[in-house]
């Protein structure tokens, strides 16, 4: 039986490796390759770790299979009497230590770009696209009035604190310009949620009581799926939304359409141009 079990353990690890190897072809893999510059770097890091861990996995499983097979075929009267090897211990302490430290340090620049505010793309920071408020179970979006120019940090903070009459509102449908970094301010209206766009490899929790800036860049003009990744109650799975990345032109048009819609007074022939305008006059 010993030989059978040695093969059994080898066999499972082969199945595991094969399963991973065929996964991309079977569609059990990333929904798409990352479609943002940061996401591409994250993918690269993922593959780096994947290669290192695969080699380690194969190494340990082969070693395991080998020692089992040797044990199964061992015809000696007695097992080897050994309490270990100091030099082996040193080797298998130092080598993994270096590999692990390398992996850790190699990650830092990408993390810096994504989360350390001083490394954020400044253009995006200076003109946030929208404020996204997660609530049970939807994403409420507030754009600044078209043409609203932010004068510095304090102005943005003021806008985040106090809505303005020209702000535009939507739900579950965030439009952003593609091919340039954009920044949203993420907050939660009730419990904790998480802003997750799989294709862009962006995830950030929305924490009650905090306003968290999140930046991302979509390299293509298309609609990206956007979901919630932190348990937020019974309807957690329902927070289905999309981020539409589009050209600057389309984005502006979209905001214009939104504005017309939002200031619609229900009178067909006049709905187009004038009605919305007066909203601002009072201010």
């Amino acid at each position: 039986m010993g030989k059978f079990w040695s093969i059994f353990f080898i066999f499972w690890s082969i199945v595991a490796v094969v399963a991973v190897a065929i996964s991309p072809a079977m569609g059990w893999w990333f929904p798409t390759a990352a479609e943002s510059p940061l996401g591409e770097q994250i993918d690269d890091l993922f593959f780096l770790i994947l290669y290192i861990t695969t080699i380690t996995f194969i190494g340990t499983q082969v070693a395991m299979g080998y020692v089992l097979w040797r044990g199964a075929t061992n015809t000696d009267d007695r097992a080897e009497f050994s309490h270990g090897s100091h030099s082996l211990e040193v080797i298998w302490t130092i080598v993994p230590a270096f590999i692990l430290l390398f992996i850790a340090l190699y990650q830092i620049p990408v993390w810096e770009q994504f989360r350390i505010q001083s490394h954020f793309p400044q253009d995006a920071v200076n003109s946030p696209i929208a404020e996204v408020t997660a609530r049970q179970f939807e994403w409420r979006i507030r754009y600044p009035a078209p043409g609203r120019v932010f004068k510095g940090k304090s102005d943005i903070e003021r806008w985040l604190k106090q809505p303005e009459p020209g702000d535009l509102y939507t739900v579950n449908d965030l439009h952003v310009p593609s091919n340039k970094p954009v920044l949203i301010h993420l907050r939660s209206g009730d419990v904790q949620h998480s802003f997750f766009i799989p294709d862009l490899r962006v995830k950030q929790d929305a924490v009650p009581g905090m306003v968290i800036p999140v930046w991302f860049e979509a390299s293509r003009s298309k609609a990206y799926e956007w979901v919630c990744a932190e348990l937020c109650g019974w309807g957690h799975y329902k927070m289905k939304a999309r981020v539409v990345a589009e050209s600057d032109e389309d984005f502006k048009n979209y905001l214009h359409e939104l504005e017309l819609e939002q200031f619609d007074d229900g009178v067909p022939e006049l709905a187009d141009s004038s009605a919305a305008g007066e909203e601002e006059v009072s201010e």
Partner: peptide, 29 residues
């Protein structure tokens, strides 16, 4: 009714020079 949410902060809002909407609309068209 639509102005109520901004009523208390009107003083804060007035100094802001938001471009009149007609201009923005014109620019996008």
């Amino acid at each position: 009714v639509l102005s109520i949410p901004y009523e208390t902060d009107r003083a804060i809002h007035e100094p802001l020079s938001i471009p009149p909407l007609e201009q923005t609309t014109a620019a996008t068209e």
